[in-house]
Amino acid sequence: MKIVPNRIIIILVVFFLKNTAVFADAGPPPPSSPPPPPGLPVDGGLYILLMLSLCYGIYKLIKLKNIKKASN
Rank of each mutant, 00 (worst) to 15 (best):
I3T: 11
I3Y: 06
I3A: 15
V4G: 02
V4M: 04
P5E: 02
P5R: 01
N6H: 05
N6W: 07
N6Y: 05
I8K: 10
I8F: 09
I9H: 11
I9W: 01
I9P: 08
I10V: 10
I10C: 03
I10W: 02
L12D: 02
L12V: 11
L12M: 08
L12W: 00
V13A: 08
V13M: 04
F15R: 09
F15T: 14
F16Q: 14
F16R: 14
F16V: 15
F16G: 09
F16S: 14
L17K: 05
L17I: 12
K18Y: 00
K18V: 10
K18S: 13
K18G: 07
N19F: 01
N19E: 05
T20E: 10
A21T: 13
V22E: 03
V22T: 07
A24N: 04
A24H: 01
A24L: 09
A24P: 00
A24Q: 03
A24G: 05
D25Y: 04
D25H: 04
D25S: 09
A26F: 03
A26R: 08
G27Y: 00
P28F: 11
P28T: 13
P28C: 02
P28H: 08
P28Y: 12
P31Q: 00
P31I: 03
S32C: 07
S32F: 08
S32E: 11
S32P: 14
P34N: 05
P35Y: 13
P35E: 13
P35F: 13
P36W: 15
P36N: 08
P36D: 12
P36S: 14
P37F: 14
P38I: 13
G39N: 10
L40A: 07
L40C: 01
P41Q: 13
P41S: 11
P41E: 14
P41T: 07
P41G: 05
P41A: 11
D43G: 03
G44T: 10
G45K: 05
L46F: 13
L46N: 04
Y47V: 02
I48S: 03
I48Q: 10
I48D: 09
L49P: 03
L50H: 01
M51E: 04
M51L: 11
M51Y: 07
L52S: 08
S53I: 07
L54T: 03
L54H: 01
L54D: 01
C55E: 06
C55F: 12
C55Y: 09
Y56R: 09
G57V: 10
G57C: 14
G57I: 08
G57M: 11
I58E: 02
Y59K: 09
Y59V: 13
Y59I: 13
K60Q: 14
K60R: 15
L61K: 12
L61C: 06
I62M: 08
I62Q: 12
I62V: 14
K63N: 11
K63P: 00
I67L: 15
I67T: 05
K68C: 05
K68D: 09
K68Q: 12
K69C: 08
A70P: 00
A70S: 11
S71I: 09
N72R: 07
N72V: 07
